[in-house]
Nucleic acid binder design. Structure first.
Lengths: 173, 173
DNA sequence: CCAACCATGTAAGCTGTTACATGATTGA
DNA sequence: TCAATCATGTAACAGCTTACATGGTTGG
């Protein structure tokens, strides 16, 4: 199961779709980090079918892909995974976006806490590296490049805190 | 020429190194986004040799890889490319880090301007998307996920401005 | 009617991953 | 001496990209 597979699975879970419709999502939304090329999407859909997580269903004239029970379980397990410091940010955010489809908002809050924690770990790691011998020997611009990573991660941590606040407020009152 | 190839080329350009030494860099520095697995590094080095951009050179007992004239030209051309909004951030930052090895600091400043511009373009694009119909129909969390991207990009733009200032000051006085 | 879009695929080729394999050197 | 690290590879496999190919539908 690659990120592309999960992206397809999540979209199909939200709404039964044709391969072409899925490709259009990748072309016209910020999910464009995934390739919309037929050579990636159609083989991936075949794999998902073979794995039993989606099935082809006739809807009116055309047939679309729908998620199966096994697919639903696999997808939710993926969403529930804690965020790790090494996890790709785009993928983590994709999981967060998909969490909306679940009524239990606690899952989303748990994700945000986990994400903030992962950011924090990364920040700690970068700051630790910034005191190492290697760091001292690095030229100015290499250090600036690393600082870029630090800034970005700090912004991400702030976002997580903000988002957590907004979601909490949306639930309570 | 993949990003891995350029990363190897840049490291070799800075200092002649063995395959193992290159792998160690990927294992112990923030360049860890590149795989240090032998199955990726050694074949890549072979490709670089075949392309004529590096050559194996005996240094004392052991032999290391050194950059060739063609390699030097190819690498500099890569560094000089303007940053595009679609370019991977990590790769762009890698280019910036490698620019340190060139005495002409104007290249670095040009990069930072180009990078800031790319961030700006991305911000404009995201904000435009945030006024579209698609955006209106998106659930809260999807919107939050997109906002994450906005925040990150804004932080990157700020970093670029800061870095430009710092570098300018380092040059002038 | 013709261009544009809908819709689905296949094939070649390249990268990278994982896992296996080998042998030298070195420090405890 | 024995484990760890140095050092370099290969083989099977999966995934993605590019390019090619096909045929249906629809709007101007």
């Amino acid at each position: 199961m690659t990120p592309l597979n999960y992206a397809l699975l999540g979209l199909i879970r939200a709404e039964a779709r044709s391969g072409y419709a899925l490709r259009k999502v990748f072309e016209t939304t910020p999910m464009g980090s995934f390739s919309s090329s037929p050579g990636s999407v159609y083989p991936a859909l075949k794999n998902l079918q073979k794995a039993g997580v989606i099935e082809s269903r006739p809807t009116g004239k055309k047939s679309v892909f729908a998620i199966t029970g096994a697919g639903d379980a696999a997808f939710e397990a993926w969403l529930r995974q804690p965020v790790t410091a090494s996890e790709n940010t785009d993928i983590a955010l994709l999981r967060f976006a998909f969490l909306h489809d679940y009524p239990d908002r606690q899952l989303s809050l748990a994700f945000l806490l986990s994400y903030a924690r992962a950011c924090h770990d990364k920040i700690v790691g970068l700051k630790a590296f910034m005191t190492s011998d290697t760091w001292q020997q690095m030229p100015l611009q290499t250090r600036l490049a690393v600082q870029h990573g630090l800034r970005i991660t700090e912004a991400a941590a702030e976002w997580a805190a903000d988002a957590h606040l907004q979601l909490s407020e949306e639930i309570k009152p």
